[in-house]
Design a protein around this nucleic acid. Structure first.
Lengths: 94, 94
DNA sequence: AGAATAGGCAAGTAGCGACTTGCCTCTCAA
DNA sequence: TTGAGAGGCAAGTCGCTACTTGCCTATTCT
């Protein structure tokens, strides 16, 4: 469970999750070009690959090899543990 | 918003939130002794004070000076932004 | 087969974050 | 009013992590 919090504590990884939620099932290169063009952050391919590895270790991303490409899928279940551990808002649990 | 994720990315701070949710409105010394006795982590008073400062910067803890003591209160509203940004589970949003 | 595409592995560097140490301020009680 | 309790501030150390660099593997296309 600590892996989930560690994975979320990085703006690049949070942007990667945003992009996967916006359009699921993308390759590493697609995510690289999108982060560079749409968010202006000049990260190398290896850096983003390592970020995706952290997200995968946390269970927030699952991958699927398709030929020589690697498809990445968002997976939100680990996020449920956060609001189950602490009440998100007093008014949400009447 | 990045402060919330940074604040959650630490086991000591997560335990502090646990303790405040279990019993709200505690002083620094009460939290220190509780973490040491119930969780076995031998952190100094200054370390825990700095952790509470990070939680306060993130808006997850609000403080209230009462004489020479400082009362700490849990505040869960910032956590709502997490599940609002990404869907926590596919079955929760039908 | 050979070249280009898509990605992986591993070591090394730099900078941030957790923790300590030492000293200081403020409040309350005797 | 003096001492003890509760907490704050600031500098310094150490370890982790994000990123780079360089090279390697596997798949597809001509």
């Amino acid at each position: 469970m600590a892996d989930v919090f560690r994975a979320l504590d990085d703006e690049t990884r949070r942007l990667l999750l945003d992009e996967l939620v916006a359009r699921d099932g993308r390759t590493l290169f697609e995510l690289c070009t999108t982060l560079v063009t749409r968010h202006g952050l000049s990260s190398s391919r290896q850096a983003i690959s390592q970020h995706l590895g952290v997200l995968e270790d946390a269970g927030l991303v699952v991958t699927e090899r398709r030929g020589r490409t690697k498809i990445h899928h968002f997976r939100g279940e680990p996020l449920a543990a956060i609001t189950q551990r602490w009440p998100a808002s007093r008014k949400d649990t009447p």
